[in-house]
Design a protein around this nucleic acid. Sequence first.
DNA 1: GTGAAAGCGCTAACAG
DNA 2: CTGTTAGCGCTTTCAC
Lengths: 347, 347
Amino acid sequence: MAVTLSDVARHAGVSLATASRALNGSARTVKEDLAAKVRSSADALGYLPNAPAQALARSSTATVGVLLHDVADPYFGAVARGASDAAVEAGLLPLVVSTDADPERELRSIRTLHAQRVRAIILAGSAYTDRAATRAIDAALAAYRDGGGTVAAITDHGAGYDTVCPANRRGAADLTRALIAEGHRRFAVITGPARLRVPGERLRGVRDAVREAGLPLDELDVERSEFSRQGGREATSRLLDRAAGPQGLPTAILALSDVCAVGALAELRARGIDVPGQVSVAGFDDIPLATDLAQPLTTVRMPLESMGGEAVRLALQQSELPGDRTARRIALPVEIIKRESTGRPRP
Amino acid sequence: MAVTLSDVARHAGVSLATASRALNGSARTVKEDLAAKVRSSADALGYLPNAPAQALARSSTATVGVLLHDVADPYFGAVARGASDAAVEAGLLPLVVSTDADPERELRSIRTLHAQRVRAIILAGSAYTDRAATRAIDAALAAYRDGGGTVAAITDHGAGYDTVCPANRRGAADLTRALIAEGHRRFAVITGPARLRVPGERLRGVRDAVREAGLPLDELDVERSEFSRQGGREATSRLLDRAAGPQGLPTAILALSDVCAVGALAELRARGIDVPGQVSVAGFDDIPLATDLAQPLTTVRMPLESMGGEAVRLALQQSELPGDRTARRIALPVEIIKRESTGRPRP
DNA sequence: GTGAAAGCGCTAACAG
DNA sequence: CTGTTAGCGCTTTCAC
């Protein structure tokens, strides 16, 4: 049914090998007139190479796998964009796979991508806290690397991987310091799910700043949430219910992801609590619409697209470079963006 | 380096054929004890099938291609999510490819996906208006289908494709009618790029309603924009500059995509024009954060995730069903969501 | 139910 | 520079 390379070769009156060399390049070169003949036969017949066959013969594909938690999440959308662009730039096809932040699915996805023989795997989402799951994932990635694959991570996934490191802890600390400087003393934190490592890093940053300011750590009211609008909203609701008691409202809510902050703002609005009048709200990530929200969000800007792009580049460089080197780390600065969702607390 | 099926066969003391049948299923069946032996050898050795080799031998892959304009756009993020979930559900790996709404890139991407021998291609973005480009794309898709591939589209891409049809025209008309009912008479429209078909459909809906209400069509002030926040903002700026002249502000701005509406709101805010006090703004799509904006957006809700899922299901059903049937169309209802970005015009 | 062997479409030695 | 010829790893007749 489909036209194959030997059809083209026959049509052009050359050997299979020559046709292959003319169309798909190789060390050997082909005299220009022959090459031209092959090319014109190819598009006369509408030839399209069979990528799986090429992959089998070359034992390497022109694809990279991008593993992330959720394509519909603006954070990952931006990261995927950067990664895709970099992959296309390098002549590779990006395979974007969502794992729903589930270590099981992540493991299966790694196996799938390995089976596909993608050239590189990008771990775009947070690592997991579960030791067993992490071990299983590391083992799957080790097997993948043994087969010649290359891995790069965004945010810390262990010392063995080339990593793009946005300053999660430092960013959280800076953000908290900025709020402390504005007069805030009582914080509530909406952190991410316990199974992810990133929320822990960010929370540590918050604690750093709180401790450094000599504020009592146990006044830090921490509530867990999925990294989603709905999760953030529910966490805020629990927080506020609790605050109805003797201790009252915190002066600032730190949501350790912008989508959670959006949920927090929604819940506060629903309860008629003024932001930033009664309580300030800050986020983390600086997703594209952070500035367009009902309360433009004070947040920590991460260079999302570059993170995706850099990770792909890191992974691809590995295959070019010789032998095993120690893993590279690219530190990415973050920046506090002050907007209207935060302000001085009422005296 | 990598463990192959014959390693497994040898280890288990069976033939290659038996190993294949035991691990990857087939018409023939394998006695349970042998099968078990093969399976345990497989994971003792850490065997992982070589997908390209399977693809070559079976001449079919377990992948679907999802072609969209931009992964970072919330509209496509949601559609991609629905499509990915449906693909995974069907045991397939989704390949999400961004084309930047460029017909050239779309054509190349179709060829790439064809070369990969994906089982199905989903056209998730709008079709193009350019006749030549459309012909080239249709030809590439025809070749792909000849090779046994299956295609489904979201929004009209021609009668030949199974299509998920959200009511673009009808939705735009309904939205416009709702605004007319609220008292609006002078509209400005921010439509999408001329090279895309969808903005045209939506604009037609606006005109339907305007005409039906007996309003003069030439009072429709139409400005073009890319489907992006920045595009929407610039278009609004041009609109407002023009409105500084004798005719003054329209009472409502219809942005034919929510991301453009976000840009419009940003520009209005920057100029200190009150929404909806001085001018109402409506969008289209109901992207996830539409309700959380500074002015919660009145818009036309499209079932984005379902659209992606349905398209995948449509495409996959084709391969199950016999011979060529006429293309199927799934009409998807849309719903007007009234929020605070619109209101009665000032008398 | 199991095995032997012939490809799937292409690349890459290896000769010439 | 071009052609011949083995495979790449797997599935699938076809015999047994």
